[in-house]
Design a protein around this nucleic acid. Sequence first.
DNA 1: GGTCAACCTTACTTTAAGTAGGTTACTTGC
DNA 2: GCAAGTAACCTACTTAAAGTAAGGTTGACC
Lengths: 208, 208
Amino acid sequence: MTTAPQTRKRRMPRAERERQMLAVAEEIFAERGYAAAAMDEIAERCGVSKPMLYEYFGSKEGLLVACIRQARGQLATAITQAAVGATGPRDALRRGLVAFFEFTDAHRRAWSLVLRNEAAVAGQAAAAEVEAIRQEQVEIDLALLTAFLPDAPRVDLEAAAQIVVGACERLSLWYVSRDDVTAEQAADHLMRVLWTGLAALVEPPTAR
Amino acid sequence: MTTAPQTRKRRMPRAERERQMLAVAEEIFAERGYAAAAMDEIAERCGVSKPMLYEYFGSKEGLLVACIRQARGQLATAITQAAVGATGPRDALRRGLVAFFEFTDAHRRAWSLVLRNEAAVAGQAAAAEVEAIRQEQVEIDLALLTAFLPDAPRVDLEAAAQIVVGACERLSLWYVSRDDVTAEQAADHLMRVLWTGLAALVEPPTAR
DNA sequence: GGTCAACCTTACTTTAAGTAGGTTACTTGC
DNA sequence: GCAAGTAACCTACTTAAAGTAAGGTTGACC
């Protein structure tokens, strides 16, 4: 009685409360899907009432956008970090891929908001946020590819970058659903197809 | 006066009305996005009242699912048709790709429901329908790749199929947004990367 | 120990999905 | 031709959840 659990409601500074709200929202969005997620429930699980959510995030869509933006920042950081110290463009690509797959595995809940299309529901802003993630990836790949192939026509490079990003995204969904494949293996599968091509799978190249 | 435009309201047999509703719904979903699309508006533009939509499609999500399912059927037909009469697996793959890009261009409104993630909004059913499209593509690719590489480990083939599907999807979004690229060119870009690999772009192979 | 700001609440409005039950027009057998 | 049945259709409602107005409480700092 003297040392009651003190799990009682507590006032939090804004920054901390926002972080908590994002965590709870991410969980509920991933759990129920955006449409079925109720703001009342998110508020309740935060131990707070609904207008607080609106105070801090403006709207339901705003809350989703904040979740996605957070994940986006984390992903960009992870990939950028992974690429430093690479021995060359090819190594940089591989390291980036590994980091990407590791991230999507570790944050599969957050990432599923992107992958499983929980975005465009809400409207323009959320869709734009998801598209921004992909655009960011394309930029990164484009920079890499340009380093490889300074003389190639721009349009070829753009197409190639889109291909890499699309392959990554889809492969990550597959990879996350399989327990027997590691991030390295997924990256290797992709590197092999991208680098060597399917033809080489048919008949291994003469050398190299 | 004798031959008044007769654009007056008219009773339609169910099948015809359903087709009309699907066409209108597809348009409005693509125009406004799923969330912002109002059932009242769809009904009104059909010249019919809302309960009819619910009578025929059960729910808003059901209507979306019907739209997607229709597009899915059309796409599968287009790809299957394109592949008949191919001279070999490689040609079959290329023809399939061309058909895919042509379809997504011609039906860009319907396809945007899939590409721009207008699905999972609604809930499980719509998401499942979109996933079914991708699964269908994976199956097709898997069959093709197995014909290529009967001895390759299953897991390699699956990864490759996922890569092809992801690349297709992303590339189609890019291609649709560019007026200066034809379906054939998009298919060729993809074939080149997939078949020959990026390495060959760096230094063209010695022979064929 | 007062006062100011930030955190938080109750209780409301609004919008759009979904529905109950009745009405009108086409068709089919006589 | 005409009744009777059925399929297409409507008006008017309920309900659920997003979003908001206006005010109460707590803690920090002079």
